[in-house]
Computed example of a mutant assay.
Amino acid sequence: MKFKQNHFRKVPEKLLFSLSQIVSDKVIISTNISISARDITNGKYKKWNINSINDLNDESVINFMPSKREGPSSKINLVGRTTILRDLPKEDKSWNITGPNFGDYSKGTHTSTITKPVFQKEYELPREIHLSIKNIGKEKDSDEIQLKIWIQELLSKSDKLFSDDFLFNLNLLQESTGNCGVISLSQEENDKLIEEKQKGWEFLPIGTGDIRGKILQKIGNKKDISDSSQERIDYFTNPPFEIVGHINGINSFERYIGLELPDGVIILENFNYGNAIYVLKSNWETFSKMTRGELIKQKSSETERVTHNKNWKINLETVLGINHK
């Protein structure tokens, strides 16, 4: 369906009606649109990873992630969101600042730890949902090409988070295409997506797996890696503290790499889009059983968020209780 607005505050009545007509519990967000071969040639759809008409052969499926400039949901999808919980009691928070010795940088610098009560927060991790595109035919006597565009995330109407996820995915598709809809799945598609959804993480004990290789795959094996990214790769490949093993994200969490510490704390890092490290007060057994919805939204009482500023390593180790002399 085509809608005038770019973003919905609530699900449109037409889509609620379409949803009510679907008997099955499992649905996905999908739409069909027409695009012109001329627009493809002029580069209009490069942001969808369509560079030429040849990219749309009969069997190909093109995946892309919307730019954060497409709209509010697209931005959350890429970088996450932080919400201040002003209705909850404040809690003590510590962070580090670096300053000059005796007010003179020529005499060196020192790091000081500041602790003060702050409002609790809820962190929504980047969802990193991809949109998929397939050519489903060409209009007769026209250069218009029919495309099916959908989100390969299975939604269950019986899930307690269904309403939130349904609206989020509708907006993600709407912001990129100006169209959105909802469909049920064939049993074969349903079984395949359920199987893939159940596989989110793999645990790699110390000494198993090529961790650096897995990280490089996550960032696309780029030839030119910035110094800051290289620093993060080195840090997570060989952390300067004891760990039990690495956690490798797969499928919908494929861009994440994690560490588990001996006390059960989990550290998650995203090398592509994440602008922060997340420290979860959990353990592998509990963490691996979390649903996607439970993992995406974490309160600061359960999770610490460490931004990638110049003191990120010291701040991370302060959160972990590692003393610096």
Rank of each mutant, 00 (worst) to 15 (best):
G274E: 04
L172C: 04
N49I: 13
L193Q: 09
I215P: 07
K26A: 11
N96K: 10
L155N: 02
G209T: 10
E231D: 12
E124M: 06
V279G: 05
P240N: 02
I136V: 11
K148A: 12
S52C: 07
H324I: 09
K116I: 14
S186L: 07
D141F: 12
D58K: 09
P126I: 02
L295E: 08
I266N: 06
R212H: 13
I250N: 02
I296P: 04
V244I: 10
P100L: 03
E175F: 00
Q230E: 14
M290K: 11
K214A: 13
N42C: 10
L16K: 07
T41L: 15
D55G: 00
N221K: 07
I136Y: 12
Q21G: 05
I267E: 11
R9F: 12
G264I: 01
G293S: 01
G178A: 00
N270A: 07
P240G: 01
K148N: 09
K107R: 03
K160Y: 10
P117F: 03
I266K: 01
M65A: 08
I211Q: 14
G178W: 04
N323P: 06
E59A: 09
P89Y: 12
R81V: 03
G43H: 15
I225N: 06
E188L: 10
V319L: 05
I33A: 02
L170P: 03
C180H: 01
M290E: 12
I225E: 06
I114R: 08
R305D: 09
L154F: 05
I233V: 10
V265A: 11
H7P: 08
R9T: 15
N221L: 11
I211H: 12
K310L: 08
I62V: 08
A37Q: 12
K46S: 10
F162H: 00
V11C: 00
G43I: 14
I129L: 01
I250D: 00
I211T: 06
I149T: 03
T113N: 08
V319F: 09
I97F: 08
I243Y: 05
A37G: 06
N221D: 12
S20G: 01
P126F: 01
N323Q: 09
E231V: 04
L261P: 07
K4L: 07
E304S: 12
P239K: 04
W150G: 04
L172A: 06
N251H: 06
